[in-house]
């Protein structure tokens, strides 16, 4: 399946509220494969949400197992359809960036522990507890499904001076 280009802000799809998936069919399976391929293609990418490749459906993938922050504590590859966070606790700040908002980073507060449920690609409902870096990645990707970018959550103004290639 092809790697898809990552849309960048100000592409309007990135600010859209995504639709629930009503039926998990071949199209959804293809979408998930595209998301996984696109994630694996991005250098160091730990997740991609459907709107980032232009699809306004509540689907995202996360895999932090190969990242230095997440390799000790993760669920491997998570392919999430209609994910919902049912409980959250704790709070930690992390400097985030996003493939859809290149050349900018900012400090974002997120829950450190979350419980979420979602449908697997085979349709089974799954509930997991995620924490630490994996929880941050999941919350970041799920935000995309609501048209929320990390820029909407930046808590510190001391930011954005890094990885800027030129003016």
């Amino acid at each position: 399946m092809p790697v898809q280009p990552i849309l960048r802000y100000p592409h309007p799809v990135l600010k859209k509220l995504c639709h629930r998936v009503e039926q998990i069919d071949q199209k959804i399976h293809e979408l998930i494969q595209d998301l996984v391929d696109t994630m694996l293609d991005g250098p160091g990418s730990v997740g991609v949400a459907a709107p980032q490749i232009g699809v306004t459906l509540r689907v995202c993938v996360v895999d932090v197992s190969k990242n230095r922050h997440g390799k000790e504590n993760n669920h491997g590859l998570l392919c999430m359809i209609n994910p919902e966070i049912t409980a959250r606790s704790g709070s930690a700040t992390m400097r985030e960036g996003c493939m859809s908002v290149p050349d900018y980073t900012g400090d974002v507060d997120r829950a450190t522990d979350i419980t979420l449920r979602f449908s697997e690609p085979d349709g089974t409902l799954r509930e997991i507890d995620a924490s630490g870096f994996e929880a941050v990645a999941i919350q970041h990707e799920m935000d995309h499904l609501d048209g929320v970018l990390f820029l909407d959550r930046v808590t510190s103004i001391k930011t954005g001076l890094f990885r800027r290639k030129n003016y």
């Binding site: 922050h69 400097r95 985030e96 960036g97 493939m99 290149p102 990645a137 970041h140 990707e141």
Partner: peptide, 11 residues
């Protein structure tokens, strides 16, 4: 004096 890594992660 404390030193900690804050290299941003691009999701």
């Amino acid at each position: 004096i404390g030193v900690r890594v804050i290299t941003p992660v691009a999701f």
